Computed example of a mutant assay.
Amino acid sequence: MQLKDVGEFNFIRQIQDNTIYDSSTVVYGIGDDCAVYSAAPDMDQLISTDTMVEGVHFSFHYMMPYDIGYRLMTANLSDIAAMGGNPKQIVLSVAAPQHIDTEILDEIYRGIKAQCQRYKLNILGGDTVRTEGPMVWTVTIIGEVPKGTAVMRSGAQVGDVVGITNYVGYAATGLGALSYNLAGYDMTKIGHQRPDPQIELGEQLRQLGVHSMNDISDGLGSELNEIASASNVSILVEESAIPLHEETYALAKHLQTKPVDYALYGGEDFQLVFTAPKSLVPKLENLAGITLIGEVVTGPPKVEMVTQDRTIKTIEAKGYNHFHES
């Protein structure tokens, strides 16, 4: 059945089930002009928004509808993780063509709700409208962090170590394998289709006392430059230390590309990159999923990398850019 046959309000009624996963913070959910939620007095509130456009951020050629909803939520949850926060509420809106099958929309919502259930994240409302163009999804997420403890990009200090969570270049590897219709690459294909946010690690890193943090949505190179610019520092990383998956090396060999470029410029891994005082190194080394890749040094805001042949290469902020003209 198509959306035009169901109508906006009937469709909204269809998806209202299973939207509240932590009722302790909700005064009134879906059903009025606004939702009402309660904020803890000892917490700072975090808010962020992300939009995914069909053909730009996702394609039905490489993803099932469920994956689209799952990935949409990961992108939003990752912003909260980057501050060391805990996600609490969302509102979401969709602009969809009237001829779209409602089963597709149902599956996208199922992916959204799976992530919401996992992280006890309430869906408080939103909007559904018709569009003549591609489908567009927008989520605004609200989280919280103990007062005065949010981890910013601007906190990096000279002498800090630079660390990263899990693998980077993972999602770009999966997308490359899907784009070329290559067999295998099962782990990184899932990494592209259903990436997971690093909520738990983000909170652990905040509690340890890291100085700065950023999530990797536009590529490691771009995110490192954001930290360097916001903190007015230079960052030096070791190419050999950057954690790449074996499937990234395999794809790079197959396509005759550089493995590290998937990490630097691929994006959408939704991992975390951070800087921390050297005194935390023993604790960081004992934390599962953490790799130290460099240090913060004196100098103007820039990012440099010691390559495999021990030359110094400047890493530009040229991750994915929506408005870049090639």
Rank of each mutant, 00 (worst) to 15 (best):
T128P: 00
Y167I: 00
M152G: 01
L92M: 12
I164H: 07
V162F: 00
V151Q: 09
A114T: 08
L105I: 12
D160R: 04
Y185K: 10
T138N: 15
H99P: 00
Y167L: 03
I141Q: 01
Q98A: 15
I164R: 04
D106M: 05
A172D: 06
N166K: 03
Y170W: 13
Y180M: 08
T149K: 12
K113F: 12
H99G: 01
D160H: 08
G155C: 12
S154L: 00
T165Q: 10
N122C: 08
Y185C: 00
D160F: 03
K113T: 08
K120V: 03
R130Y: 14
G111A: 07
A114E: 04
S179P: 03
M135W: 14
W137S: 07
A183M: 04
K113L: 03
G184Q: 07
S154Q: 01
I142R: 11
A156E: 11
G159S: 06
P146Y: 09
V136C: 13
V129Q: 09
D101C: 01
R130N: 04
Y180V: 02
E103C: 11
N166P: 03
R153E: 14
P134E: 15
V129A: 06
Q98N: 13
E107S: 11
T131Q: 00
I141K: 03
G126D: 14
G169D: 10
V139W: 04
G159Y: 13
I164F: 05
V151H: 12
V136Y: 05
I141A: 02
Y170D: 09
P97N: 15
A96N: 12
K147C: 09
L105P: 07
